[in-house]
Design a protein around this nucleic acid. Structure first.
Length: 366
RNA sequence: UGCCUCGUAGCCAAGCGGUAAGGCACCACACUUUGACUGUGGCAUUUCGCUAGUUCGAAUCUAGCCGAGGCAG
């Protein structure tokens, strides 16, 4: 009998995952992870649950425990608070300081869930680990989750290929609706629990206030990139991402205003009018830290530059350590975000967007 | 100083006697394991610079005042 350690988050997906594995005849052990502590991590300002009698993680643990008791499997717990800070959150802050838009959840999967957690599971005697991700593994390949609205392969793109040999995604071939229906019929208390959002393990935060706990905000000018005119003032470059519209507190025109770039030296935020403004578009980007999930050479495939964005056709070419990804046109391609490559259902891996180009020229304003 | 124009929510801006369009911003919700994007809804009835009139009824007409421009000088 093979042993599987399931990452129990206290949500419905991992609850059903544990059930399915048990049905399939595995010896199942639940493992609850706690990677964030609001007090230790100074997560004070902008934290909506700070005053709650029991913190959200404790509620989640209780839910996970209730599910495990129902399924008659043991539940253990482990803390990676320091590791999460060192490998995920520090990276997150460093990237923000550089004016980029990091994706902490991608690093969380790479360093915590599919590394630290995996090692911990092995020490508990695991042959495999399992999570409630919406993704599938077939013949060593990572496939999109069947529920295309919930597919999470984007977040798994930085996990190295060999890790997946010891991973199971039991709910990857189900839709969210099927999962909830099954959970409900089993009487699991997580059946109708709301999907969690926000940074994984941290949760929803008022972004501006949240960051103020960690980074100094340095106000500067908001500049219309087309005229060079000052339109207003921003509260700190790290609060804005490319393509963002909300939070500029600028109005007065009939058209919408979007963030198109930043200048760290001058502490300027560049904006432009209109959702189809040329400054928002590009036709190529250079990606770094490329992690491939296939042995085969990649030339043409599809890619997405942000989670839940539609795939677009691209061509890929190795360029030293990095890869050059070219495409007809894409909007709001943002340094720091992941570019994830696909061949139909197969996730080929991806990289982190480093530079963005248009007509052979690097976009100077990013 | 004389003459002219203008003053509508945080911003832009319709309305020109019949009981305050719209856009941007902002807020809420939906969507969402990354900060978005997107969608839906809310958002001036102690109201239209202030005061006093005309009128059944005014942001819309009249007078004065205040304020912002402009033309004469």
């Amino acid at each position: 009998m093979k042993t599987v350690v399931v990452g129990m988050s206290g949500g419905v997906d991992s609850s059903v995952s544990a059930y399915l594995l048990k049905e399939q005849g595995y010896k199942v052990i639940g493992l609850f992870m706690r990677n964030w502590d609001a007090n230790i991590n100074n997560d004070i300002s902008g934290n909506p649950t700070l005053q709650d009698a029991i913190c959200p993680q404790e509620k989640d643990y209780n839910d996970a425990l209730a599910v495990c008791e129902k399924l008659d499997i043991p539940l253990k717990r482990v803390d990676f608070i320091k590791e999460y800070w060192d490998y995920v959150f520090s990276y997150f802050l460093e990237e923000l300081k550089k004016g980029r838009t990091p994706n902490p959840d991608i690093m969380c999967n790479k360093y915590i869930k599919f590394d630290m957690f995996l090692k911990k599971a092995e020490s508990l005697g695991a042959d495999f680990i399992a999570t409630g991700h919406f993704a599938r593994l077939q013949d060593g390949k990572l496939l999109r989750g069947v529920d295309e609205n919930k597919d999470q392969t984007y977040f798994l793109s930085q996990v190295s290929k060999e890790k997946f040999e010891r991973v199971l995604f039991p709910v990857g071939s189900m839709t969210k609706k099927e999962i909830r229906t099954l959970a409900s019929s089993l009487g699991l208390i997580t059946a109708s629990k709301k999907d969690s959002t926000g940074i994984c393990f941290i949760g929803e935060r008022h972004f501006t206030q949240f960051l103020e706990n960690y980074l100094p905000n340095i106000p500067g000018d908001i500049i219309d990139i087309e005229t060079g005119k000052k339109l207003g003032e921003h509260i700190g470059l790290m609060y804005y991402t490319i393509g963002q519209r909300k939070g500029l507190q600028l109005g007065g025109d009939t058209d919408k205003i979007f963030v198109v770039g930043k200048n760290l030296d001058k502490n300027h935020l560049y904006v432009a009018y209109g959702e189809n403004n040329p400054y928002l578009f590009s036709d190529a980007c250079l990606i770094e830290e490329v992690n491939l999930l296939t042995e085969e050479e990649i030339s043409t495939c599809t890619a997405k530059f942000r989670y839940r964005q539609k795939d677009i056709p691209v061509t890929v070419k190795k360029c030293g350590e990095d890869y050059l990804v070219t495409y007809e046109t894409a909007k709001s391609v943002t340094p720091g975000q992941a570019c994830v490559l696909y061949d139909k259902e197969v996730c080929l891996g991806g990289g982190i967007i480093k530079e963005v180009y248009k007509k052979g020229e690097k976009l100077w304003y990013l």
